[in-house]
């Protein structure tokens, strides 16, 4: 019997959809699946977790003033991993995971592969991209505990109903020496879904002409329940914040649909979105690289086409 740990990511107490693909990937025959849920009402997420095969829900309670402290959160999970004899840990390679998973792996001196597209748990192999997204690497990990950061949306969720037991884990006395959380400043609150999680991403580049025009993309993205991204050219021009950048030095994304608007498609941009399911390029320049390396190309002005698409979506 193997014990597998899964770190669940929540959004204001609700389970994010992207967890289900990760749980599907982590499921293995003859194993116990431990879902770590931090500081939340586990009864509200129990049914969802059971429907994907979670057999144990670890209800981790933290001291109220330590809830946002990443060092404390990591320590609580690392302690739980040891307590329950867990040999393999899965988390999401989201912005939160990029801080949390390395902290856990470092504390346990466990190998960690971030941004995995897939994992072969039986052979301790994980696949991720290397060299600016130009190669796919299979990485062998060895150790008492191994950790995998799964790329959101990389695995299609498949249900597998089981029943679960709730385990209470008291982390309220955990503190972090020399590390203090002071405050959190909310980002753009109009952002409803993050780039890493979105099924649809509409990204703007130089062809957007200015920052104000990005609202055209936001309106369309809202109708599609998607997120808005940007190329480095748009970020460097000061039109949109860095947190919106897709590419080698920005967010790496794998949405089901990526719509590149007025984006030339540099190697660096491509490194961040090439694994998207379907790519649609819209540009007035038919020679833009993205127009030759996509599934659908449209020779058009995004500033006219996108509002038209939004209008059609609004009118059903």
């Amino acid at each position: 019997m193997k014990n597998i740990g899964i770190i669940i990511e929540l959004d204001e107490g609700k389970i994010k959809e992207i967890n289900f693909g990760m749980i599907t990937l982590a499921r293995a025959p003859d194993s116990d699946l431990f879902a770590f849920v931090l500081d939340a009402d586990v009864t509200a997420v129990r049914e969802d977790l059971e429907s994907y095969g979670i057999t144990k829900i670890v209800d981790v309670a933290l001291a109220s003033d330590q809830r946002n402290n990443p060092a404390v959160r990591a320590k609580a999970i690392a302690n739980g991993i040891k307590e329950y004899g867990i040999g393999a840990v899965f988390g999401l390679s989201t912005a939160t995971g990029k801080d949390l998973l390395p902290r856990i792996a470092a504390q346990l001196e466990a190998p960690l592969v971030m941004d995995c597209f897939t994992v072969d748990l039986e052979n301790n192999l994980a696949w991720t991209s290397r060299y600016s997204g130009k190669t796919s690497a299979s990485i062998k990990v060895t150790g008492d505990i191994v950790v995998f950061g799964v790329r959101p949306n990389a695995v299609e969720p498949v249900k597998g109903q089981v029943s679960s037991r709730i385990l209470k884990f008291d982390g309220s006395r955990i503190v972090s020496r020399g590390f203090k959380f002071v405050k959190r400043a909310a980002g753009d609150t109009s952002v409803k879904i993050s780039l890493a999680e979105a099924d649809v991403i509409i990204s703007g580049g130089r062809g957007m002409k200015n920052g104000d025009n990005f609202s055209i993309l936001s309106k369309c993205a809202e109708k599609l329940n998607g997120a808005v991204g940007a190329s480095r050219a748009a970020v460097d021009s000061g039109w949109v914040p860095y947190s919106m950048q897709v590419g080698l030095t920005g967010e790496k994304v794998s949405p089901r649909v990526y719509i590149g608007c007025g984006i030339s498609g540099s190697i660096q941009h491509f490194a961040g979105m090439k694994t998207s399911g379907l790519i649609i390029a819209i540009n007035t320049d038919k020679h833009a690289s993205l127009m030759a390396d996509c599934d659908y190309s449209v020779l058009a002005d995004v500033l006219e086409l996108i509002p038209e698409i939004t209008r059609h979506l609004e009118n059903g």
């Binding site: 190998p111 960690l112 299979s138 990485i139 062998k140 505990i145 659908y296 449209v298």
Partner: peptide
């Protein structure tokens, strides 16, 4: 360290896409 990790295999990550062009007026394309 008891733990280790190393690359066992490396392959070019090439996803060949053959673009289809969408043509027409703005309404048709949308």
């Amino acid at each position: 360290s008891k733990a280790d990790m190393w690359i066992v295999g490396l392959e070019p990550l090439v996803l060949v896409r053959k673009p289809k062009e969408i043509t027409g007026d703005t309404d048709e394309v949308a």
